[in-house]
């Protein structure tokens, strides 16, 4: 009877196992300073580049002068989107690079526990990478993204959800196709960069492309960001539309992950996790 109870407990969702995986990634970051530097380095380079572009353009254009920190805000939010996806995918790739995936797939760790641990480590990586950069922007460019308050929280949650949705799909592809799909974890998000209108309004796009842009959750976030910075208005309608599309986006990502995991089991590709 006791054994049956233990078995039932082990078959349920286990936060202990999620904690074990988070601890595993935490040890990795703690033992590898180049990984930590990498998390901060690129967002900082991006911030300085776009921040100085913003400073220059603001002196030439009344449009940009009217919204201090537009490029910086767009950059910080874009990096949030990109790095939430990459944080998820790179944490998973660490298992493939170290040939540890077999140990995990053969352990009691359930797929959803693995996914939740990757989400948690994605947030930790995001915090390590983005908090220092957002603080640098205050003295260097006079822009305090934390001043957006609740709007920032809403933007952040939506962008992270979109990043995770795409991350689930990429992990599924890695399981099914091995390291041959690795390049997608670096590049797939960039497909969204021109269409989601990070640095310009949706109206800039050709009319035929605008419906596609509005079908993507980040577009609503970046339009909302511009509304806050230009008009000092928080567009609740854009927040709700982003949340609704994100719900579908996240569900689609999880569905793709589970289908690709099942396909990998059928194809035997979990036994061969090379290229």
């Amino acid at each position: 009877m006791r054994g049956a109870k233990t078995a039932m407990r082990r078959d349920g969702f286990s936060f202990t196992r999620v904690g074990a995986m988070v601890l595993r990634y935490w040890y990795l970051l703690a033992n590898s300073w180049p990984r930590v530097i990498e998390l901060v380095y690129w967002p900082t380079v991006n911030l300085l580049t776009w921040g100085f572009v913003q400073s220059y353009v603001a002196t030439k254009s009344s449009y940009f002068a009217g919204a201090a920190g537009l490029f910086v805000a767009a950059l910080l939010l874009w990096d949030t989107l990109l790095r939430s996806q990459q944080g998820l995918a790179f944490a998973f790739l660490e298992e493939m690079w170290s040939r540890n995936l077999g140990n995990l797939l053969m352990s009691p760790l359930r797929p959803m526990e693995f996914v939740v641990s990757l989400m948690a480590i994605s947030l930790i990586r995001l915090a390590i990478g983005m908090v220092p950069v957002s603080l640098i922007a205050i003295p260097v460019f006079g822009f305090n993204i934390w001043g957006l308050g609740l709007a920032l929280a809403a933007f952040f949650a939506n962008l992270v959800a979109t990043g995770w949705g795409l991350g689930f799909l990429i992990i599924g592809l890695l399981l099914r196709h091995g390291l041959g799909a690795e390049a997608l974890s670096w590049s797939l998000m960039f497909v969204l960069l021109p269409i989601t209108c990070v640095y310009y309004p949706v109206a800039t796009l050709p009319a035929w492309l605008q419906p596609l842009a509005w079908a993507l959750p980040p577009t609503h976030v970046f339009e909302g960001m511009r509304a806050v910075l230009f008009d000092h208005v928080f567009r609740v309608d854009l927040l709700f539309s982003a949340m609704a599309i994100n719900a579908v986006w996240l569900a689609g990502g999880l569905f793709a992950f589970h289908r690709l995991l099942a396909a990998a089991r059928r194809a035997g590709s979990l036994l061969q996790q090379g290229e």
Binding site: S14, T16, R17, G19, L23, R24, R99, S107, L109
Partner: peptide
């Protein structure tokens, strides 16, 4: 449980850290 020379444990983690993680995974 299983053991295979074709599967590794994370290289960057110490032996103690690796065993701690797996002890928690197996509760």
């Amino acid at each position: 449980n299983f053991e295979s020379p074709y599967v590794d444990m994370p290289h960057r983690l110490t032996v103690r850290q690796n065993l701690t993680v797996f002890a928690k995974l197996y509760e």
